[in-house]
Amino acid sequence: MKKTILVFSLISSVFFYSQNYSSLDKILEKLETRSKKMKDASGFDIKDKKFVLIEDFEDHAERHILEFRNDNSLTLIEVIDDKSTDKTYSNIFTGDYIRKKNAISVRADHLEGKKISIPITHNLYLMNANNIWYLKDINTNKRWIENSNLLKKKN
């Protein structure tokens, strides 16, 4: 008798927990569809698009320009402005990327045509807010804004 009650209680608990998980999943789906940032961006073409990340530090400023090409290759340009000497330095990286829906994995493994031992990698997520497309770095939460949006804001 004890065994049957134990088995019945285990089966019923699994049943109730699975219903609870189902309702949680439905709530999350509703939240994702309502949120403008989490919409499916598989229809947005990133080929021939440029995204810019600007960072300002005490001693220097960095501008990173990420350009996606048609053949799944990319160019990452890193421009560093030294504030103490007013000199500008640049690095041009090339590599490739893989895209699955909103997720984009970037690997830049060549510096000015020469292979580097440790490639620069970024895991990015394509997002949209107020019709502004941007890439959000999953690891650092930095935002790469599409270049055409920057040009619209200046004018």
Rank of each mutant, 00 (worst) to 15 (best):
M1W: 13
K3E: 11
L6Y: 05
F8E: 07
S9G: 02
S9P: 00
I11P: 01
V14G: 02
Y17E: 00
S23H: 11
D25V: 08
D25M: 09
I27H: 13
L28E: 13
E32H: 14
R34M: 10
R34G: 06
S35D: 07
S35W: 10
K36V: 10
M38W: 15
A41T: 13
A41C: 12
A41R: 15
I46A: 08
I46G: 09
K47W: 02
K50G: 04
V52M: 14
L53R: 09
L53V: 13
I54Q: 15
F57W: 12
F57G: 05
E58G: 04
D59I: 06
E62T: 15
I65M: 13
I65S: 14
F68Y: 05
F68Q: 10
R69V: 12
L76A: 04
L76F: 08
I77P: 00
E78I: 07
V79Q: 15
I80T: 11
D81F: 15
T85D: 10
T85Q: 14
D86G: 06
D86F: 13
Y89I: 07
S90G: 01
N91C: 03
I92M: 07
I92S: 11
I92Y: 10
T94N: 13
G95W: 05
G95L: 03
D96K: 15
K100V: 02
K101P: 03
A103F: 12
I104Q: 08
I104M: 06
V106P: 00
R107V: 05
A108N: 04
A108D: 04
E112Q: 08
E112F: 01
G113R: 12
G113F: 03
K114S: 01
K115F: 00
I116C: 01
I116W: 01
I116T: 00
S117P: 00
P119M: 00
I120D: 00
L124E: 03
Y125F: 11
M127N: 11
N130Q: 13
N130E: 14
I132V: 14
I132G: 00
W133T: 05
L135G: 01
D137F: 00
T140F: 01
N141Y: 04
W144N: 06
I145T: 08
I145M: 10
E146Y: 02
N147E: 14
N149C: 05
L151N: 06
L151Q: 09
L151R: 09
K152T: 04
K154E: 14
